[in-house]
Amino acid sequence: MSYIKNYIDELNKNNRKALSIFLTAGFPNKTNFVDLAKSVLDSGADMIELGIPFSDPLADGPIIQATSKLALDAGVTSKDVLCYAEQISKHSNKPIVLMGYANPIKKYGIENFLRDATNAGVKGLIVPDVPLEEYDPFFHSEERQSLDKESPNNMSKEILHHAQGVIQNDRIDVILLTTPTSSEERIKQIDAKSSGFVYCVSITGTTGVKDSFDDSTAENLKRTYSLIKKNKMLIGFGISKPEDVKRFSPFCDGVIVGSRVMKSLLNKEERKETLKIIEQLSQACES
């Protein structure tokens, strides 16, 4: 059983939608980053999505492009990101999910990365440029296939134990994304291949802060939510205001907010308001 799914389920049972806050790892500065992440969690975030900075973030809009570039300029590496994850996970049992483009993970070594991430307490992984058709080629390279042969049943790898009321295991959930362009059939396949939750992209577009959504957004969320059976469903891309959270809450199990928070951290004047923004979003997650 997935740690993340259970965690979100517990929240939902208590009439709360999960609030996942995206942070570009190591931004705005390397030395205080772990403290920032801790205070984000203490301000009401239920989960943290740690973005591994990449030189060519195709799925990201200008804000996360800028924060990724600044993090890279400051020398943030994949190893640093895992190190942050480890420190944050010691502080809290709220799930940490990594969001990273394929190439830095491939370069690190996919097996090594999954192992080190697991050891760092990471619960889930999102790779936005590895869609359904590349899932097996990417995650099941020959090396990994031979490893899987040794323990063909994934469940056998899971060490289940109760800790603080939530079930934990040592398997990282791989979270795939659906978009408004995904067919019903694909959404079902994505649900089947994902674990923990499915990341429902609210719009056709890149990450960012969206001023308003048209009616088709809610329609698509409804459609997708009705098709997701195995996993929880979180929505993201464009979600920035408590009103957005309230509006879309009926059609999801939680929301992911990234660019709004990163925008606030990018602006030195606005930076001190960041935690307040998270508190307000968190309040909106209560029903």
Binding site: V130, L132, E134, T179, T181, S182, R186
Partner: peptide, 19 residues
């Protein structure tokens, strides 16, 4: 599958797959 040996493929965001 759009592979030239191990190369090529469709490493893009989900939004583009149907297109």
């Amino acid at each position: 599958k759009g592979k030239f040996g191990i190369y090529g493929g469709k490493y893009v965001p989900e939004t583009l797959i149907p297109a």
